[in-house]
Nucleic acid binder design. Structure first.
Lengths: 203, 203, 203, 203
DNA sequence: CATGAATGAGCGTTCATTCAT
DNA sequence: CATGAATGAACGCTCATTCAT
């Protein structure tokens, strides 16, 4: 087989294997959690011996870090792509929310959920790195919310926490057959949006 | 020792011991997670040998179930007590939210966070029971939201999911020195409330 | 069975078990070396599972430390007892040497050889402690040699190193059927002793 | 590249590589011991992958055997060269002792110490071969001692064991900054020599 | 000559759990 | 009520070694 054909659109085998491991780990971490997943579980999922994993990753933590990083990359990419064509600040935030929900619940379920649900303090040596990844990703939402044309009395801080909480909690209730992510995002954003446009306050 | 003295203000010893174990387990589950906490950790925290725990609980899962149950009971009690004196539906929801946040972040941190953060699927044999406890507790919020005088076009479903998500995500960002739970609750409820009073008008 | 009989001259079972482990470890460390002996080897030798060892010792290093300490205690005890009845400095040194050889080759072969042969640098966390134990034991010989009536031109330093080296190297060549330790000790001490009494020097 | 250039002062590459491996192994075996050194450690030290070692050596034991052999060769060469110019039997023994100490502590530290310190019984399949190498080397000292003009009552056997023990134990106490090997050897030999010249007279 | 990728056994250690005392 | 002592399985990880490329 000519090398050209092999190279056409396919990663070389070794990288493939690393990816298989990452996929399996993401799936298992998502399903059972980091601590409840063993190296043997991951190895079994890709038909490998547990010791062989260490050729590709130097520790269990490193796998988590890789899944985390990849999760942030994927969800971030989706959000960026969704935001880019929009110009209206609210439309941008809604698009970002839909993309976030979509990644978390559908497109990149395993990777994204691991990143959202695994608390940095759970992983012994890499807590700080996980926190950084989270912070960098959440900065996207911070910027989108900073761009909203809001009356000065609106607390952008709690608006952000509310939206992110609402979005991230979706992993608890979201079911594949339910409303599409865009529908959910629209509902969430509408709720937040009223406040701005009418400016009224409750005592 | 006369039984009177022992009974004065104190539970009988065995119940006392069980409670100590539960407290220690709640604290440790909250700090490190269920899977990252060992029976030895719990035993050490109450100055006991790990084998002795089995006099009080038949398995690690049973401890989790007990913490979960107690967490739901405590947070539920707080919410009920907070709601009771209020009559206005929005005020009731705000009071409930404040109580929920208060339990989760201050008053019953350990128990409440275990119940909120430990996903039913993480615990092998008791997933269904955990799910039931969660459902029963969340029903309180469902009822409160059902009582809101909302225009018919408002989707109570997403309003509930949004509020609960926002509230429960607080464990990620809430810090002891920050705004008091009532302040946060007021901010969240105000955001949701706008929608009602001004009617829905999306572009 | 009355408790008195059980207690007569026999250690309680638990201490017995620890001692069995220590004996087995000493034997195996002596035979194959510390690194070439596994916890499973030790466990098997006392008909236990490897995990069960950890009820008695918290790590493999701790076992080595215990064997080392016990080795030093036993050999030291033998040396002290042998030296005590003697008054002549040379006789005391010879008695000490015989006791040392005896412990190392016959009476406490396993424990003593582990202490003599295992280099402190071989055991990761306890190197300093092992070194201290060795130093304390060797101090006995230092004192004995300091008490010798030697002409001022004799270097006690090298005399000590020579004797200790000669004694400790015995583990390489000593065979159970050979000369008794007292014979070897007498031969060694005689060789060293000439120098003193005649005071002659070679250019 | 012309072979001439390659050959100028340098061994052909493959032999070079083998020697690098041997050097690295000697150093690591000397520092940490045979069992505490892994093939990966050796490979890393010469910037190779552990699997690649097997092109040069068929097993870890074979490396040890090679180091051992080379250690014996080097120390033997040094001893022979030192002995050769001397004619007086005592001077020859002293020269040999100095050369032995010098190899062990300075000139060929790594190789020589591995050969002296690694006990044949520690290496699973090659114990007999290691024993032979040691025996062949020690024969040099046996011959030197057999040539000494000693009174018939002197036990050449224990004289040899004492000297070899004293010399070989030096790895425990010798420090680079201390007396030069020749000084130590002179001190040792003087001590042994008294006996001869004055005749034996034990009380 | 050497690598990349793996194997299979084994490492020291920890786990939840049991049970006679 | 609790301990002391253990079990048996599993943990994350490292080992010497193999072999197609």
């Amino acid at each position: 087989m000519p090398a050209e054909i092999q190279a056409a659109g396919r990663l070389p085998r070794p990288e493939n294997r690393r990816l298989q491991l990452l996929d399996a780990a993401a799936k298992l971490f998502c399903q059972h959690g980091f601590h409840a997943t063993s190296m043997r579980d991951i190895a079994r999922a890709v038909d490998m011996l547990s010791g062989s994993i260490y050729y590709h990753f130097s520790s269990k933590q490193e796998i988590l870090l890789a899944v985390y990083t990849e999760g942030a990359r994927r969800i971030g990419e989706l959000v960026d792509a969704a935001v880019e064509p929009e110009t209206d600040p609210w439309a941008r935030l809604e698009a970002a929310s839909a993309a976030h929900l979509n990644a978390l619940s559908v497109t990149h379920r395993d990777y994204a959920q691991v990143m959202i649900r695994t608390l940095p303090q759970e992983a012994d040596g890499i807590g700080a790195q996980l926190r950084d990844i989270r912070r960098d990703y959440e900065a996207k939402f911070r910027r989108l919310i900073d761009s909203l044309p809001l009356p000065s009395d609106v607390d952008r801080h709690y608006l952000r926490l509310m939206l992110i909480g609402a979005l991230n909690w979706s992993h608890v209730w979201y079911k594949p057959g339910g409303d599409r992510p865009e529908v959910v995002a629209k509902a969430f954003i509408q709720t937040l949006r009223r406040r701005t446009e009418n400016g009224a306050q409750t005592p």
